[in-house]
Amino acid sequence: MDGGGEAAPPTAHPAVQPLSFLLGTWRGQGEGGFPTITPFKYHEEVTFSHHPSKPVISYSQKTWKLKDSGEPLPMHAESGYWRPKPDGRTIEVVIAQSTGLVEVQKGTFDEKEKVVMLKSDLVGNATKVKEINREFKVVNDELTYVVEMGTNVTSLQSHLKASLKKV
């Protein structure tokens, strides 16, 4: 025992360590659009959490818009798990959306560039959505992402983008 002071934060599981740049809660604003909907803006909170004994990251996301009264109005939420593979480059992700849609994604990550690229392997319980790709990147303590979506009538294209700061 060192006799005092603050305890060191627990280290991440070795499989999660290369993605530790994501860990924490991020808040900011985003915008969305698609050929079949009216463009919109939103506020967002994303949390990546982790217990050092498990090789997985818990993910949760929620968005809201502000009503004219200034009160938040919930829009969308999703949660899931990010599971880095032992090779230190690939990842599997499962996400359940509040709309009932479920995504199984596979992708790659680059610890040095602080980027994660995901492509849908399966989009379940969806009548129109056929594929979803996501790119997350951290630059200068800012998390940005882009979500692309393809439907049964529209090819894969930009749907959402946001910029978030760690809180």
Score class of each variant (00 low, 15 high):
74 P>I: 14
108 T>I: 10
41 K>L: 12
64 W>N: 01
66 L>V: 09
122 L>W: 11
57 I>L: 06
97 Q>A: 14
53 S>I: 06
105 Q>A: 05
64 W>C: 01
55 P>L: 09
54 K>A: 13
129 V>Y: 06
85 K>T: 07
60 S>N: 02
89 R>G: 03
122 L>H: 10
39 P>R: 05
37 I>W: 12
92 E>H: 08
128 K>C: 10
129 V>L: 14
105 Q>I: 00
129 V>D: 07
123 V>R: 01
35 P>L: 14
60 S>D: 01
107 G>E: 01
118 L>Y: 02
73 L>E: 15
41 K>D: 12
55 P>A: 05
43 H>G: 14
98 S>F: 09
70 G>K: 12
55 P>G: 13
87 D>W: 08
84 P>R: 14
67 K>T: 15
126 A>D: 12
112 K>V: 05
122 L>G: 04
129 V>E: 05
124 G>V: 02
61 Q>L: 07
46 V>R: 05
71 E>C: 11
103 E>G: 01
103 E>S: 02
66 L>W: 08
42 Y>S: 04
42 Y>I: 06
103 E>W: 00
88 G>N: 07
64 W>R: 00
41 K>N: 15
68 D>F: 09
111 E>V: 01
50 H>F: 05
128 K>P: 04
68 D>K: 13
64 W>P: 00
92 E>T: 09
76 H>Q: 13
106 K>N: 06
98 S>G: 10
63 T>A: 05
76 H>K: 13
43 H>V: 07
52 P>G: 12
77 A>Q: 12
59 Y>E: 04
63 T>D: 02
39 P>Y: 09
71 E>P: 12
83 R>Y: 07
115 V>I: 14
39 P>M: 03
124 G>N: 07
95 I>A: 04
87 D>P: 03
91 I>S: 00
77 A>I: 04
57 I>D: 04
38 T>N: 12
49 S>A: 14
46 V>L: 09
94 V>H: 07
36 T>C: 04
117 M>C: 06
117 M>V: 15
71 E>W: 15
126 A>N: 11
107 G>A: 02
77 A>L: 07
66 L>P: 11
118 L>R: 00
115 V>D: 02
75 M>K: 05
91 I>M: 10
36 T>R: 02
109 F>C: 00
125 N>P: 05
32 G>C: 11
44 E>Y: 10
37 I>V: 15
93 V>T: 06
54 K>E: 14
92 E>M: 00
116 V>F: 01
80 G>W: 09
46 V>D: 03
121 D>T: 11
75 M>D: 13
112 K>D: 04
92 E>Q: 12
105 Q>R: 04
124 G>S: 12
57 I>P: 04
123 V>A: 06
53 S>Q: 07
57 I>T: 04
77 A>D: 03
58 S>D: 07
45 E>L: 08
111 E>A: 13
58 S>E: 05
91 I>G: 02
110 D>S: 08
65 K>R: 09
101 L>S: 03
117 M>Y: 07
102 V>N: 03
38 T>L: 13
36 T>N: 09
34 F>P: 07
112 K>E: 10
128 K>D: 14
98 S>D: 06
121 D>V: 02
44 E>W: 03
128 K>T: 15
53 S>W: 05
69 S>E: 11
69 S>R: 08
80 G>V: 07
110 D>Y: 08
56 V>L: 06
51 H>S: 02
94 V>I: 05
100 G>P: 00
119 K>H: 14
36 T>F: 03
75 M>L: 15
117 M>L: 12
37 I>K: 15
52 P>A: 11
127 T>K: 09
